[in-house]
Design a protein around this nucleic acid. Structure first.
Lengths: 194, 194
DNA sequence: ACCTGAACACCGTTCAAGT
DNA sequence: ACCTGAACACCGTTCAAGT
């Protein structure tokens, strides 16, 4: 209760972001929706970017928590894709260009990364993913999911209805190729016997 | 010579974009650097976004031409990554959120896509890539390269120096997995005989 | 400690006017 | 057809002042 104004400001900022994109997030309108004056935000945040960083950190923290509770690697990646497609403005904000690196945001990103790596290790032990540095394999998976969403949002992925590969499809494609190259594949086991 | 002012405006915009990011691109400074008044741009472009769209289209057109002249799939993807890392502001602009879709930009994207698909088809015929829809495979490759760059620029990829996988490394990783799953791999050929 | 109202500098855009 | 200068509305930020 001590600083409920701060939460109200972040809430208003998220609301405006979803409604009209980043240019709709003005400190004046944020303050108005939070029931305070147009420069009250400066009593809680250094400036506009610090407010947006708080929004991004909260969003990424929730996303990281969702990753931690997920059980399968595929569901994590599909959850990532679904979130980004449903809330494109939040997705762009979280991974946008920050002039000052918020440590809160970095911590949230690290949590999500760790959860993903744990799932990769688990799948590697089951022989369903290739061997090798799990961090690097996790980076490969996240990069593909991220890029597929980003290109889709930018309209640069299969503009026509022909080769209509959705981000979810591409995630499944990659997982399939990795399974093929995994030690659990009998053909691969023959090539590289234990 | 008819509209050299237009080119001067685009040149100035690119220069400002590289120097100080998108917020440094103000119509006033663009006009000043082009040697005209602060609202002369309105005689050549609908508004600021149209000017930025022209910048993006020119950049993507050049990128597409580079793809068309490249000989190997790997060199195309590494060229994409190197360009994005060297000119992050241009990369972000090209794939940013456009409220109005410039057809010039869309055409440039289509050209680059077609060149990439042609290279994929060629590699498939050589048995060095898995079979299947080449458009979809091209989308997979582009999505990975794009996502690896985007996460790196956002600082969300291997922040520590430990699992230091660069975008170029991830591109090579994916190509390696795809080669493993390709018909040219003897183990795979044994599983799926022609 | 938290908030307000006025004020400043800056920017995108419009308009009347010039050649 | 292309350009200029003034003007308008809007926004981020600062400041003096209030409780």
């Amino acid at each position: 209760m001590a600083s409920s104004t701060r939460d109200a400001l972040v809430d208003a900022a998220v609301q405006l972001l979803d409604e009209g994109g980043p240019e709709a997030v003005t400190l004046r309108e944020v303050g108005h929706r939070a029931g305070v004056s147009h420069n009250a935000p400066y009593k809680h945040f250094t400036g506009k970017e610090a407010l947006l960083a708080a929004v991004a950190a909260r969003e990424l923290t929730r996303q990281g928590a969702a990753v931690a509770t997920a059980t399968t690697l595929r569901s994590v990646l599909h959850g990532y894709v679904d979130w980004a497609l449903a809330r494109p403005a939040r997705f762009r904000l979280v991974f946008g260009a920050w002039s000052t690196g918020s440590e809160e945001l970095a911590a949230a990103a690290e949590t999500a990364r760790a959860a993903l790596i744990a799932l990769v290790v688990e799948q590697q032990r089951a022989g369903r993913l290739p061997d090798g540095d799990p961090e690097r394999l996790a980076a490969l998976l996240q990069a593909l999911a991220h890029g597929a969403v980003a290109l889709t949002l930018a309209g640069h992925l299969s503009p026509g209805g022909k080769g209509h590969a959705s981000p979810g499809d591409l995630v499944d494609d990659l997982l399939g190729y990795l399974v093929t190259a995994a030690p659990g594949n009998p053909a691969i086991r023959q090539l590289f016997p234990a």
